[in-house]
Write a protein that binds this DNA or RNA. Structure first.
Lengths: 110, 110
DNA sequence: TTTCTATATTGCAATATTACGATATAATAA
DNA sequence: TTATTATATCGTAATATTGCAATATAGAAA
């Protein structure tokens, strides 16, 4: 069929999938890295920074915003974007679990 | 159109996108969580654990393996899967950067 | 050998994502 | 008011992903 069977997985698993999927594009990673570098910026700055058209950048920003990874505030004519801590904190939880598991090297089967 | 413009992004950005994309599915997150729980297991165990057919589980395992997030070792008739530290360590680097940036709250524009 | 068991691959239909031109919206400047 | 500037949305084509039935492969057991 082609549709992900979200209904058979936990809310946590689906949320985590949504968050990591929002990150999983080189353009969106570049946007996140740029926001870390300049702290905050407007859409036009990112359009100048990336080899993508304005509508495409706008779409990527929307996806990051929907996932809760960035937030934007209206500043007159423009919208100022910066990272949203909330989204990243949810991802952090998962990777902390994974990393602390891997740190205890009882997992030598392979 | 429709193809991600990987050639315009850095190798690091593309690699990170590939890794996070491999994680970004509830079934693959469930597989990772199950492997953490039981340390290592065979494909059939995961088929019993998830509401997906054997070919679909096999495909998800392949994607996780290709991305370097799990590894499998032949044990006679079966294949024993466990987490692959290498893939996760590459992701860890990125999120460590993000988290330490967010910890220094100079980013209050929004 | 033959059969059984475990996993992978093929082929395909349904759905989702990516990218962008064209256009819409909305605030500012003239 | 009319431009200009910044961003979003629409529509659509190209491509990728998801899921599974059918089938292939390959080791173990009989």
């Amino acid at each position: 069929m082609g549709t992900t069977k979200t209904e058979h997985f936990t809310a946590e698993q689906n949320e985590l999938a949504t968050l990591t999927k929002a990150i999983a594009h080189p353009a969106r990673i570049a946007i996140i890295q740029h926001l870390i570098k300049v702290n905050s910026c407007i859409c036009g700055d990112i359009v100048n920074e990336l080899p993508l058209s304005q509508p495409t950048v706008s779409q990527h920003l929307k996806e990051l915003k929907n996932a809760g990874l960035i937030k934007g505030s209206l500043e007159g004519n423009t919208i100022c974007y910066c990272l949203d801590e909330l989204g990243f904190s949810k991802i952090k939880e998962f990777f902390t679990t994974v990393d602390s598991y891997l740190a205890n090297k009882n997992n030598q089967c392979c």
